[in-house]
Simulated scan of single mutants.
Amino acid sequence: MGAGPVSGGVLARLRRGVWPGANPLRRRTDLFEPVALLVLSAAAMVVLLCSFIASQAVLRDHLAQVNAEHVDRHQVTARVLSAVPGDDAAVVRSVAVGWGAEAEHVAVIEVPTGTQLADSVPIWVDPQDRPVPPPRTRSEATQAAGTAGAAVLLGSGAVLGGLFAAARWYVVKRRLAAWEEEWAKIGPHWRHHHP
Rank of each mutant, 00 (worst) to 15 (best):
Q75W: 04
A101G: 12
D72T: 10
A158M: 13
V172H: 13
D88A: 02
P134Q: 03
H105E: 07
Q75D: 10
V91T: 13
S41A: 12
R191W: 02
G114L: 13
W19R: 05
W179G: 06
L153A: 11
A64G: 04
R13I: 05
L59Y: 03
A103R: 08
R60D: 08
G146L: 08
A42C: 09
A107S: 15
T29N: 08
S82A: 06
W19Q: 14
P131Q: 15
V46I: 15
L176C: 10
G17M: 06
V92R: 11
A103N: 15
G187R: 12
L81D: 05
W99L: 14
S82I: 00
L160K: 01
D129T: 05
H189Q: 09
D72W: 00
Q143T: 08
A145K: 00
R136H: 11
G187S: 09
Q75E: 07
V92S: 08
L38C: 11
G4K: 06
R16G: 11
A141M: 08
D88P: 03
A36G: 04
A68F: 05
T115Y: 05
E104P: 10
R28N: 09
A144C: 04
A57D: 06
A78N: 03
V58C: 08
N23C: 06
V35T: 07
V58N: 05
E104A: 10
P131R: 14
Q143G: 02
R175F: 05
G9V: 12
Q56C: 07
L25Y: 07
V97G: 04
H62W: 01
V47R: 04
K173S: 15
Q65A: 10
V106T: 14
L25E: 03
F164A: 00
A165E: 05
P122R: 09
R26I: 06
G114H: 12
K185A: 12
G2A: 07
W179D: 13
V84S: 15
S82H: 06
V47E: 14
V111N: 02
